[in-house]
Amino acid sequence: MKKIFFLILISLLCCKMYSQVKTIHVYVALCDNENQGIVPVPAKLGNGKDPKHNLYWGAGYGVKSFFKFKAKDWKLVKDFEIDDPVLLDRVLFKHSTKKIYLLADAYDGAKIQTCIEDFLLASNSQNPISIEVNSETLKFGGDADLLSYIGHDGLMEFNVDITYKKEIIKKREVIVLACYSQKYFSKEIEHAKANPILWTTHLMAPEAYTLKSAIDGWIKNETGKQIEERAAQTYHAYQKCGIKGARNLFTTGFKK
């Protein structure tokens, strides 16, 4: 009898672990011709105060548009009403077959430093965010399982001022899609005690197809190297840059 009870208990625990909700939080600094040190893009795409048309948000390969219209395995759960001078838009998606939620935030392009600092703090398990959906409390910010920054590499131009926690309970996994992100974000990600599963070594277009591909690998519990290869294949497919160049663009982990 004790053996049967033990087996039932183990089975229930396994089911609970299997059904556990996972969360992803994506921080997007809107492309901004005026306030960021970028090669200018068409004015409609580079207005950092216009999420609807922005290159990294509302355009075809922007995070909101791509996950809403092109990522068939993700469904829009909520498009939030936002009244904030810094955070201009927020959307919540759910994976179509798994209990995984993705929250994406669009920051005013002029507030890119705030966006990056918020991402880094969350990577250090700070600033948790709770969202109620269908009587369920979802954990994002510093409580998310996976965090990502998308946008211009502002750390090329400014330093952040962050007090990192020295002790954390869980090491957060992060994706940083910005130009030369390994070089410029390494010190901060190391201080945040986060695990960089994907970032970049050269100039790149931080568009949502690469993010989606990397997330696909993360969902499948792939290694950093597998995610790196997946990202390279996807980037080449969209950019036609050559697979060798794409493989040289992405990397995982810290420099050895």
Rank of each mutant, 00 (worst) to 15 (best):
I4A: 15
F5C: 06
F6V: 11
L7V: 10
L9F: 15
I10P: 03
C15V: 12
Q20M: 08
Q20N: 07
K22P: 01
T23R: 01
V26P: 00
L30H: 00
L30S: 00
L30M: 04
N33Q: 13
N33H: 06
Q36M: 00
I38C: 03
V39L: 11
P40G: 08
V41I: 10
P42I: 01
P42C: 02
L45K: 00
L45Q: 01
K52F: 09
H53S: 13
N54A: 11
N54C: 14
N54R: 10
N54H: 14
L55N: 00
L55G: 00
G58L: 05
G60A: 11
G60Y: 04
K64A: 15
K64E: 09
F66E: 00
K68P: 00
K72P: 01
D73P: 03
D73L: 06
K75W: 05
K75R: 10
K75P: 00
K78D: 05
I82M: 14
V86G: 12
V86Y: 14
V86L: 12
R90D: 04
R90Y: 04
V91I: 09
V91Y: 08
V91Q: 08
K94T: 05
K94P: 02
L102C: 09
A104K: 07
A106G: 14
Y107P: 07
D108V: 01
K111T: 09
Q113N: 09
Q113M: 05
C115D: 03
E117S: 15
E117R: 13
D118I: 02
D118N: 14
F119C: 11
F119S: 07
A122Y: 08
S125Y: 12
Q126V: 11
P128A: 14
I129Q: 05
S130C: 07
I131K: 04
E132P: 01
E132D: 07
E132F: 11
N134C: 04
N134V: 04
T137R: 12
K139R: 09
K139P: 01
K139L: 13
G141K: 12
G141L: 08
G141H: 10
D145P: 05
D145Q: 14
Y149P: 02
H152I: 01
G154D: 06
G154P: 08
F158Q: 06
F158N: 10
D161Y: 10
Y164R: 13
I169F: 14
I169T: 13
I169N: 13
V174Y: 06
I175Q: 04
V176A: 10
L177Y: 10
Y180F: 15
Q182P: 07
F185C: 04
I189V: 15
H191R: 12
H191G: 02
A194N: 02
N195S: 12
P196I: 02
P196M: 06
I197E: 04
L198S: 06
T200F: 05
T200E: 06
H202Q: 09
M204I: 15
T210N: 06
S213Y: 00
A214K: 02
I215Y: 08
I215Q: 04
W218V: 09
W218K: 07
N221M: 15
T223F: 13
T223H: 15
R230W: 04
Q233I: 13
Y235I: 05
H236N: 14
K240Q: 09
G242K: 06
K244I: 09
G245W: 03
G245D: 08
F250D: 00
F250M: 03
T251L: 07
T251W: 03
G253I: 15
